[in-house]
């Protein structure tokens, strides 16, 4: 079993930059290209969603005034949660396409850095949600035990 106290990438060999046995074959390039196209599609959907949230936010805040504050706060919270993954996937798509088009290794590095950030963000969010579910379950059981 893995040592959970180590950083996620602790067991990666700190080898020299080059040469390394792995290479970026034409097959991998094709998969990257296809993945980046789909990633771009998701990014566009995400931006459209954020635009919609912004539209509702501005309408609610102008029409409801102080009474619409809870709605505005919820929308801001949703926007703050949705924007980072959308931005990361957009950056991933853009940089991978740039890397493939111009043989730009730096762009590829930025692209994969954004993919890593995307996974980290979703992973941490999932862990927080799981923790929240766990705490809710514990409190529910405690409540039921004391009430019963």
């Amino acid at each position: 079993m893995d040592n959970q106290s180590q950083p996620l990438d602790a067991d990666l060999q700190p080898g020299a930059n080059q040469p390394h046995g792995l290479r970026i074959s034409q097959t991998i390039r094709r998969y990257w290209y296809e993945s980046s196209r789909w990633a771009f599609f998701f990014a566009v959907l995400g931006f459209l969603y954020l635009g919609l949230v912004l539209l509702i936010f501005s309408t609610a805040s102008s029409k409801l005034g102080a009474a619409g504050l809870p709605v505005v706060l919820v929308l801001l919270f949703v926007g703050a949660l949705v924007f980072p993954p959308v931005w990361f996937i957009f950056q991933f798509a853009q940089n991978i396409q740039k890397a493939l088009r111009h043989e730009d290794n730096q762009a590829a590095a930025v692209g994969f850095q954004n993919l890593r950030r995307l996974y980290q963000f979703i992973g941490v969010l999932t862990a927080i949600l799981l923790g929240f579910y766990g705490i809710t379950l514990i409190f529910t059981f405690l409540f039921m035990a004391t009430a019963g």
Partner: peptide
Amino acid sequence: QLEPTRLIRQD
């Protein structure tokens, strides 16, 4: 010219 550098492999 694309290569899996150490930084990319870590990511």
